[in-house]
């Protein structure tokens, strides 16, 4: 039984896929920063940002639906921003009476709310494209090249490698629990109190922990057996070529244009 849903990479032979991972990571971060730096209501700039996304999506040989479907992942968090509709000073747009309070939506509030959502929506799509066009080991190489300490990169790499192993174990534990979670009738009450159920779950967590701890010991021994002495060495095959530099330059230029669009209109 295998869990393979932790891969987000979509294999294609496109220019975007082949771009140096460093460039992709940096441009993604710059794009997100650019979005956040734009003022509220910078509709033309936001539209340009979206156009850029569609362009990159196409260049990566993905369908329109591919990116669009996944773009709403951060939507639930929009709830947190709802209050700005009512609390930002401006001209009233609509209002409701709730008990003794009046809730009034202002135009500035509406603009801020919409801008927040759009910024988030645009940013998450670039992050999706980054992951879809870059294999995880290459993402790690990019981080290392960008001066993230090797210790941290290695920890994340190990985590990624063992996610699948542990996820399989969790599924097995959950299945074993389910196999013993009988009820007397089809829609009968679940047995045991919440406390008991939490305790069972906690014991599973404890078991998983102990197994993971032991595994880390064995992996450590395997590493020692092949010469590890505390300093993890890896081969980083990525070398920036002319095309990578070109893309980096073009990308940055586009973002500058978007900023100008946003601040000058």
């Amino acid at each position: 039984m295998h869990v393979s849903t932790f891969d987000r990479y979509e294999q294609r032979s496109s220019a975007v896929h082949q771009l140096d991972p460093r460039v992709k990571v940096v441009l993604t971060l710059l794009f997100i920063v650019s979005n956040v730096a734009l003022p509220d209501g910078a509709w033309w700039a936001f539209a340009a940002g979206w156009a850029l996304l569609l362009l990159v999506n196409r260049a990566a040989h993905f369908s329109f639906g591919y990116l669009f479907k996944r773009s709403f992942i951060a939507l639930p968090f929009a709830l947190a921003a709802v209050t700005v509709l009512f609390t930002l000073p401006g001209t009233a747009v609509a209002s409701w009476q709730i008990g003794s309070h009046t809730l009034t939506v202002s135009d500035a509030g509406l603009m801020r709310f919409a801008s927040i959502l759009i910024r988030s929506w645009l940013s998450v799509q670039m992050a999706i494209l980054l992951t879809a066009t870059t294999q995880f080991p290459d993402l790690m190489h990019a981080l290392h090249h960008l001066r993230v300490p090797q210790v941290l990169v290695s920890i994340i790499s190990f985590m990624y490698r063992y996610l699948f192993v542990l996820a399989d174990e969790v599924i097995r534990l959950l299945r074993a629990r389910d196999a013993r979670s009988a009820r007397l009738t089809t829609d009968g009450k679940l047995g045991g109190t919440i406390w008991w159920r939490a305790k069972v779950t906690g014991s599973m967590a404890g078991q998983l922990f102990v197994r993971s701890f032991d595994r880390s010991d064995r992996v450590y021994n395997a590493m020692l057996s092949r010469g590890y002495r505390g300093h993890l060495l890896t081969m980083n095959p990525h070398v920036m070529n002319g095309r990578d530099w070109l893309m980096a330059g073009v990308g940055t230029a586009v973002l500058v244009i978007i900023q100008l669009l946003g601040w000058l209109t």
Binding site: R161, Y162, V219, A222, Y228, L233, M235
Partner: peptide, 26 residues
């Protein structure tokens, strides 16, 4: 030395990285 559980032996991101680990650390 090859351990019993291959998930203990293969700890690197890719196959290449795992097979390269030994000689690289030499």
């Amino acid at each position: 030395l090859v351990f019993q559980n291959p998930d203990d032996q293969l700890f690197s991101p890719t196959v290449f990285d795992d097979v390269a680990f030994g000689p690289l650390h030499m």
